[in-house]
């Protein structure tokens, strides 16, 4: 890598959580965020000679991310049954129309602390599902629960984490005010 490429890669890495937030807004499809981020990185680096890296690159990254998100969204949903495509488009429309700004950057930084505050059972569930990649039916089997109960339990844990993140951000916001 030459110096400019290295600088471009470093700049991207400094903003990759921002890119993820934008990706989530325009393509709220599970697992798609990482793919979009990686594709943005590739295209950002491929054209690095065109970019003025002295300027704020966020507007540029946001535009690129939006285009790529829409493209990958189409690729990802094209093969789905019509009823699933309609649902997906509805969800994407909801996300696009949402007035909330992407908050991925600030939220991911406090999520880890919130994870530590979870009760043991909730943390075990997160570990099984997200970190050990165990599916909900298998978790249900092992824990002698109904699959539906596991789904709801995961949902409750995410709700708890959402509450915790919002509380933490309110506290931090107040402290800086």
């Amino acid at each position: 890598m030459n110096t400019h490429e290295t600088q471009a890669a470093q700049l991207f890495l400094a903003h990759h959580d921002f890119v993820k937030g934008v990706a989530l807004k325009y393509a709220p499809w599970p697992g798609l965020m990482e793919d979009i981020t990686q594709q943005v990185f590739l295209e950002f680096l491929r054209k690095e000679s065109q970019w003025d890296l002295e300027k704020d690159v966020r507007p540029l990254l946001a535009t690129m991310t939006r285009h790529i998100a829409l493209r990958l969204w189409r690729d990802r949903t094209r093969e789905k049954p019509e009823v699933v495509q309609k649902l997906a488009d509805h969800i994407r429309m909801l996300a696009e129309e949402s007035e909330a700004l992407p908050r991925y950057e600030e939220e991911i930084s406090v999520l880890r602390t919130c994870l530590q505050k979870l009760p043991d059972k909730s943390r075990e569930l997160i570990q099984l599902y997200y970190y050990n990649d165990i599916g909900t039916p298998e978790i249900a089997d092992q824990l002698a629960m109904k699959a539906d109960t596991v789904c709801r339990a995961l949902s409750r844990v995410r709700d708890k984490l959402r509450d915790c993140i919002q509380r933490s951000l309110r506290v931090e916001g107040g402290a800086h005010a």
Binding site: K20, L24, P28, W29, P30, G31, M33, E34, I91, A95, Y104, E107, I108, L111, I126, Y130, R158, L161, R162
Partner: peptide, 8 residues
């Protein structure tokens, strides 16, 4: 969806 992405 956002929380799921962050947890992953």
């Amino acid at each position: 969806v956002a929380m799921d992405a962050m947890l992953r």
